[in-house]
Amino acid sequence: MLKAVNITKVFKNEGTEVQVLSKISLEIPQGEFLALVGRSGSGKSTLLNVLSTLVRPDGGELLYNGNKVTAMPDKKLNQLRHADFSVIFQFHHLVPYLTALENTLLPFMRSIKPASREMVDKAKQCLERVGLAGKENRLPGSLSGGEQQRVAIARALVKSSRILFADEPTGSLDKATGESIMHLLGELNRDGMTVIMVTHDPEYAQLADRSIHMEDGRLVS
């Protein structure tokens, strides 16, 4: 379970302080599909980044399975990002000079020891599951936006992540592709993965178990 308690975040820009998150508290149980909705600039992406440990909050506490994430040293944070958390971005960011298969296996390419045969097979299965069978050796540049987003999802799958953070995963995709990605996220959630998704599309937010609305860095409903 992921729990945020009185999370605050302030951005400084040319001497001006902007309060992006104001005392946000929420609990996300394992297996939930949560949608963070709100207008642009409401602070939903910042909250997602804080929850996924990519941004350190200025105040408050973040707890994962009872452990204080905000007090964790870098080494443990890295381990958490490696093992339990996965993030997919609006612009489905992949390493452009690695193939789809290598991008999927990226979490397991952190050392000199090569990724095991089993892991390579699992990565291929995950690519197959997201509909990319036969495209393992393609570079991101030769894949469509939807296919690239699927590679990012396959990467979360191969890690067996417990929580998938998705920042506007359909934001740069056409409607049909966006729907197929949402379908895939729903499928992963039904398999037990917690999904926390930022979206400004109410239609996609309805697919989640719960929607949280944000305005000016606060939860409003």
């Binding site: 996924s52 990519l54 870098d74 381990q79 990002r81 960011h93 390493v95 990226l106 952190r110 990467r155």
Partner: peptide, 10 residues
């Protein structure tokens, strides 16, 4: 950013 989000250390 991507590598760091995947748990790659500094």
């Amino acid at each position: 950013g991507l590598l760091r989000s995947l748990g790659y250390s500094k």
